[in-house]
Write a protein that binds this DNA or RNA. Structure first.
Length: 419
RNA sequence: CGGGGUGUAGUAUAUCGGUAGUACGUCUGCUUUGGGAGCAGAUAGGCCGAGUUCGAUUCUCGGCACCCCGACCA
């Protein structure tokens, strides 16, 4: 894409009403736009990042055998009354409204009930199990306090997956695979070393733990205790003698760290399905409740955490896996310099042909501004084409993360970009 | 939801019960073209409402918004 066509603008100044680093940088660089507290829109660059993250998540979900759907945002009150969660006393983050005829409707803050209700129509026998479904959906939550930029919003995108199994054994097998899939996701987006599977409280419907995926991050809301061997982490909320005993670990081997919850998975058991009259017939002809699990990743929050962690004083530093473009082609000098323009155009066309996504800064601006914008936007590889590079017959390549600069030939450039 | 803070232009701020000023930004033009350059011109503001007053951005009251801490957080 030509940068002259990109409608967003970067800004030098930090927005006055943002103190979270992720929001400051994403707004300055033109990735997101703030509508009001806790509500942001995605601009072209931000959407590209978001889609890259979604694709990574989707790939892992599909590998688990899950099928993608998309549920409605407007929800039926009666479905939530089946589990007694329509009441504001029971779930205090509802946004609700009414139809013209006075009928109550809710805005989806979660989809466990609607999705489970929908699945009832499709699962009747053990032949129909197990089943896994997931979606990427906007969740609307009337948070009393939105904060930390896009890390805790009133409207955000969540990937939620649900598993429907015959029994606990079948469920646990899938649950453990889901943990591995989740870890793959964090690894792929570059957060592998900082993200821990963390035991947390189980919530209303689970009697044991749930598992959270917590990324060590100063802007996080949680405190987790990480074991010195790095394999076990426990959320502060259940860091007690009982938990330690269950896990067979000693208190003094743990260290407290601030972390952001980037995923959460639950074993629900059969309770909710029983409440919702969701049963199947087993091999012996007996009626049994379906065993439910739920698996969430706040995709927009994950993007915020990535921005928070992968950035420096000059701007964002995207990894290749999630970057809006692979290459930032920066053309220097007057646009009237037709030889430079032609060279930039040629390289741009060639890279596109090679399947490399390029943002070409073809604007008639001075070098300083272009470099500053390039650093701010944070595309992993910057290639400069100028009268200087033209004279030397090479291209200047700078790695955004390391700052390393090298002058390379056209052939070397291609091999560099392939790795 | 409890507590705290802040509301003057995109940002940072100044002044004042009497025509709201400066800097940066932004925009236009010319010059310039390897790290946010120079010159010229332009742009844009008192959160909203009520009250006091001849007159309110300023004083009073109410509301709203934003930020932070806590609570909450499938």
């Amino acid at each position: 894409m030509k940068q002259s066509q990109l409608f967003t603008k970067t800004r030098k100044e930090v927005p006055a009403d943002e103190s979270a680093k992720n929001a400051q940088l994403l707004i300055r660089a033109g990735f997101i736009s703030k509508e009001f507290a806790g509500v942001y829109s995605m601009l072209p660059l931000g959407l590209r990042v978001l889609n890259n993250i979604k694709n990574i998540v989707a790939e892992e979900m599909e590998r688990l055998g899950s099928q993608e759907i998309i549920m409605s945002t407007l929800q039926n009150k009666e479905v939530w009354e089946m589990t007694d969660r329509w009441d504001d006393e029971k779930a205090d983050i509802w946004f609700k409204s009414k139809l013209k005829n006075g009928t109550d409707v809710g805005f989806g803050w979660s989809h466990e009930e609607p999705i489970t209700n929908m699945m009832r129509a499709h699962i009747a026998s053990y032949h129909d199990l197990p089943r896994y479904v997931h979606q990427f959906q906007n969740k609307l939550r009337n948070e009393t306090r939105a904060k930390s930029g896009i890390m805790r919003c009133r409207e955000f995108i969540m990937k939620d997956m649900y598993s429907y199994c015959i029994d606990e054994a079948e469920h646990m097998d899938f649950y453990n695979k889901a943990i591995e899939a989740y870890l793959n996701i964090y690894r792929k987006v570059g957060l592998g070393d900082l993200t821990y599977v963390t035991s947390a409280s189980g919530g209303v419907f689970t009697d044991k733990f749930s598992h959270e995926f917590q990324t060590i991050c100063e802007a996080g809301e949680d405190i987790i205790y990480v074991h010195k061997d790095g394999t076990v982490a426990i959320n502060e909320e259940i860091f007690n003698e009982e938990t330690l005993q269950n896990l067979g670990k000693k208190k003094e081997d743990f260290e407290a760290k601030k972390a952001a919850e980037v995923g959460n998975i639950f074993t629900f058991g059969t309770g909710k399905c029983e409440q919702m009259d969701f049963f199947f017939t087993d091999k012996e002809g007996n009626k049994k409740p379906v065993f439910l699990g739920s698996y969430g990743i706040g995709v927009t929050r994950l993007m915020g955490v990535i921005a928070e962690i992968f950035s420096d004083d000059k701007g964002l530093v995207w990894s290749r896996a999630v970057a809006p473009f692979a290459v930032h082609l920066v053309e220097l000098g007057s646009v009237e310099d037709t030889t430079v323009r032609a060279e930039a155009q040629k390289l741009y066309d060639e890279l596109l042909t090679e399947g490399i996504e390029v943002l070409w800064d073809d604007r008639d601006l001075r070098a300083g501004e272009k470099f500053a914008d390039s650093d701010l936007i944070g595309i992993p590889t910057r290639i400069v084409v100028s009268s200087k590079t033209l004279a030397s017959g090479t291209f200047e390549v700078k790695d955004r993360a390391t700052g390393e600069v090298s002058m390379v030939s056209r052939a070397e450039l291609s091999s560099m970009l392939k790795n």
